[in-house]
Design a binder for these strands. Structure first.
Lengths: 220, 220
DNA sequence: TAACTATTCAACAAAATTATTGAATAGATT
DNA sequence: AATCTATTCAATAATTTTGTTGAATAGTTA
């Protein structure tokens, strides 16, 4: 085997991974699977794709060893093949946000629709939680909360927020978090909370990022 | 703008980056540019592509903001757009090596051609250099050495190694390094050194990885 | 200003990727 | 064992990506 043939083979193998990531639907699937395992139909619903199409994209991800499967009754559940996969996705996402102004612009333009939303990062939240100075709300669905959530967070699905809200004391700041950087449930929640007279902020990133950084997570 | 349209736009923008990385030639270019700036023709020669083809791939990388250009006389020099780019590439490469046995296999099969080569990592090399226990050889070309090399390394281009070798004392271990994980100059060097009776090892990764990790680098 | 030259572009054909449709399959229920 | 059902597959057409060829371009040098 010549050096050239060797290099061709190596870069070709590695490009199978980047190729598998080189499609918007598949990036969204990877982002979603950061939450935990999902069935094909759930993935299709979350991403607005047909089941057959989602299945085919999942095959591509599986062949690239980026996702793995387990079976639960009639359902096949897809998960990320390891935490490295989410980390690599997070690194690429960061790359996009730093070097490609377009990504930043799309996100900030869309978020402006909810008014000016303050956000804090994971480190700051840890400090506030330790001092017991804040109420932390998980505004994803009840099911997602059950899969895993930030330690000490209360479940407050965005649809039910307005009724839950009445039970919250107004003397503490409320922090809301959701699925990730590209999920706007937390923005919606903060906008509603502020309208009702609360001091509110969103966690900059979402649950999968929090978990990937090794901060405390629980299912109870 | 609906949530769906927002997500479509975000993932579409981000996929431009992963798409740009989703091609073996372009990965090889990114890997090469980890060494420093190169002209289109140099890139074409190093990768075995035609100049026009290399140019087109470079346009793709440039549009994705992964590389940037500077001009030097008649030549246009391409560089990585920032160190994040090399780090993202390194993360993907690591992902490939961990999850895709095929990559590991191709590399180790090819290297077996040079016999059993021991390698050490960057951290271990730092310790050995501090104790002045080793001779460190940069076996890339003289020109690459001049662009930048590991502090205290001697230039020993692989072609000239056998003559340089005569000047080296035999009481110290020799460590050789080259362009990266997929470069076999260091393996060749170690094989030759061992044949001549030296104790020799290769640095596991290459110069760009060393530099990306923030270890000391010099051009003098 | 004229000549030169590294790089890019345009046009083409071949190959690969994509979404949709509807049928096939594997595996769990009953 | 028969039925049911989530998932996968096969076939298709539309779109995108790729490498080659040769010409065009922009910017430097003389």
């Amino acid at each position: 085997m010549t050096k050239r043939a060797f290099k061709d083979k190596v870069y070709d193998e590695l490009s199978k991974i980047t190729k598998a990531m080189g499609n918007p639907h598949r990036l969204e699937i990877i982002d979603l699977l950061g939450q935990g395992p999902f069935s094909v139909e759930q993935i299709a619903n979350h991403t607005g794709m047909s089941v057959a199409n989602a299945s085919q994209h999942l095959q591509v991800l599986k062949n690239a060893k980026l996702v793995s499967i387990t079976r639960d009754g009639n359902f096949i559940l897809y998960s990320l093949a390891g935490e490295n996969v989410f980390n690599a996705w997070a690194a690429l996402r960061a790359l996009g946000i730093v070097y490609n102004a377009e990504v930043e612009k799309v996100v900030s333009d869309f978020r402006k629709g909810y008014g000016p939303i303050e956000s804090i990062d994971a480190e700051a939240l840890v400090a506030l939680l330790e001092k017991d100075r804040v109420i932390l709300l998980d505004v994803r669905s009840a099911e997602e909360y059950k899969r895993g959530h930030i330690h000490r967070a209360l479940s407050a699905p965005i649809d039910e927020l307005s009724s839950i809200l009445k039970t919250l004391p107004k003397n503490k700041t409320v922090i809301a978090y959701c699925r990730g950087l590209f999920c706007v449930f937390a923005d919606e929640a903060v906008a509603l909370l502020k309208k009702k007279g609360y001091k509110a902020q969103r966690l900059y990133e979402g649950f999968p990022d929090w978990a990937a950084k090794g901060y405390p997570v629980t299912t109870k």
